[in-house]
């Protein structure tokens, strides 16, 4: 009676969450041009995806942007987390508050504020503006991931290393960095995915010189149905799934 009801309910919600994704994947192998009728198995949309030069270029652009944004935000985020954790300095609360505001404020607010800044300061809209914007919205997530790791970090570990004869530099290399490494990787992966998925901020701060994938998809899906989007969506889904499993694996493996 009421014992199976919750489970049925959970199942139903998952069904609703996954039906659209399932349909997308199935129809990516559809031979028919129409998005609604089944015309047999085919990989033609995957083929047409890779024959589209502008599409391939947008993919590379997106990949490069996500790689660089994730890397820069991980470096700055990790240093910020270390500073917040180790140092006492004035305005610590203000710094924390700013990171929190970035994380909580609606993306569109961040987007227009950055657009205003770039236009007024005279930064060309393109790779640089995208990179600055993406690093900014990834930053708080990296900081939080690394901070969480550091807060569970035994303060006496660095002292133990020093006590056993390690210099400050050796301690950082052999103890501090290995211990926070899982958080760095998880933060990097999160930043990578956030950057790859972003539509709202990118819409505002990108220029014609540097087209990226989400914006390309956006212009494709606004009107009508494009079977190539199915193929592209499926590829992105597989890619995200691999990344997500990777980050989960890293995090669970490092759980103590």
């Amino acid at each position: 009676m009421t014992r199976w009801l919750p489970k049925v309910y959970l199942g139903l919600v998952y069904l609703l969450l996954y039906v659209p994704i399932g349909v997308l994947v199935v129809f990516s192998f559809n031979d028919s041009r129409s998005g609604y009728t089944w015309g047999g198995l085919s990989l033609r949309w995957y083929g047409s995806l890779f024959n589209n030069n502008a599409m391939v270029e947008a993919m590379w652009n997106s990949l490069w942007l996500a790689l660089s944004a994730a890397t820069v935000s991980t470096i700055i985020g990790a240093l910020t987390a270390l500073a917040l954790h180790r140092y006492r300095f004035r305005g610590k609360k203000v710094l924390n508050g700013m990171l929190f505001v970035v994380m909580m404020s609606p993306e569109i607010v961040l987007a227009i504020s950055l657009l205003a800044l770039f236009l007024l300061v005279g930064i060309q809209l393109g790779y640089v503006s995208l990179l600055l914007a993406h690093v900014t919205f990834c930053l708080p997530f990296v900081v939080i991931t690394v901070m969480a790791r550091l807060s569970g970090f035994d303060e006496s570990l660095p002292e133990a290393a020093r006590d056993l004869g390690a210099s400050d530099f050796t301690m950082t290399r052999t103890v501090l960095i290995p211990v926070i490494m899982p958080a760095l990787l998880a933060g990097w992966l999160l930043g990578f995915t956030l950057s790859l998925d972003d539509v709202v901020v990118s819409t505002f701060v990108s220029g014609p010189s540097y087209e990226i994938l989400p914006l390309r998809i956006y212009s494709m899906v606004r009107v009508g149905l494009k079977p190539e989007v199915n193929a592209l969506g499926t590829l992105l889904l597989v890619f995200s799934l691999v990344m997500l499993m990777l980050s989960q694996w890293i995090l669970t493996r490092s759980k103590r």
Partner: peptide, 25 residues
């Protein structure tokens, strides 16, 4: 189950909106 809840979150949101469009058209 939490893992499967956040899988869609890691999937491009435009693509997911588009998938809905296929269903609702």
């Amino acid at each position: 189950l939490i893992f499967f809840l956040i899988v869609p979150f890691w999937t491009n949101s435009l693509v997911r909106t588009y998938a809905l469009k296929m269903l609702l058209a």
